[in-house]
Design a protein around this nucleic acid. Structure first.
Length: 207
DNA sequence: GGTGGGATTAGCT
DNA sequence: GCTAATCCCACCA
């Protein structure tokens, strides 16, 4: 397991979004360490992408999107939730990758406590949920993800990737800028019965 | 199993 | 005023 280079975040944002799948988010909290594998991301581009916060220029809210690559862009949404993004491309470009879901690996009890739920499959399967589980809020806006209490590590995984339209976005529906690990039960929006089905198949193939 | 509304704030028109 | 890169619960089938 090793850290990512600055160059990792300089590439095409769609490529970074896909490359982030299978990487490990590590968060150090007062209660202990929390780790999760990234299983779902979305790309937000600076050109010809009206859904991107940076598409109408720099504001107080989105200024971190125009900062250097490999840093966090955290914003507040719907009056209650935070969303966590990774800044990509060269400084001033205004592109980022939204992390939409994780597979919990370590610190499950801490996540349950912070989320206020017991269900293992309802801890980090959504952008607002994973921020709550990992204690990510406005205070982490702009922090460097190569070092500190919130970092992303490489475990050398090369998952099978599928693409779809972005979630909750009305414009640019034709563009497939959402990426996720095929068949992973922690991807957002999967029904209870589908999760059960996936887990049963997994058990069958492993034995 | 699926849907519709409420919570609650910042930013934009 | 309205909408938003969301989530949860009550309610219906």
């Amino acid at each position: 397991m090793e850290g990512l280079s600055r160059d990792f975040f300089l590439e095409d944002t769609r490529k970074v979004a896909k490359n982030l799948l299978g990487k490990i988010m590590v968060r150090n909290l007062p209660e202990g360490k929390v780790r999760g594998k990234i299983v779902e991301t979305e790309a937000y581009l600076s050109h010809n992408d009206p859904a991107c916060h940076a598409s109408r220029g720099k504001t107080k809210r989105n200024e971190m999107m125009f900062g250097p690559p490999g840093r966090a862009y955290v914003y507040f949404i719907y009056g209650m939730y935070y969303c966590f993004n990774v800044v990509t491309r060269e400084k001033g470009r205004g592109e980022a990758v939204l992390v939409r879901a994780l597979e919990p690996l370590e610190g499950i009890d801490i996540m349950k406590e912070r989320r206020g739920v017991e269900d293992f499959f309802n801890l980090t399967n959504g952008p607002g949920k994973l921020c709550q589980a990992l204690g990510i809020d406005k205070g982490l806006n702009g922090v460097d993800l190569l070092e500190g209490d919130l970092v992303i590590l490489d475990r050398g995984e090369k998952p099978e990737i599928e693409a779809s339209p972005r979630v909750g976005i009305r414009v640019a529906r034709a563009r497939l800028l959402r990426y996720y690990i095929a068949g992973n039960p922690h991807v957002s929006g999967i029904s209870r019965s589908k999760i059960k089905e996936i887990m049963e198949n997994k058990g069958a193939t492993q034995n």
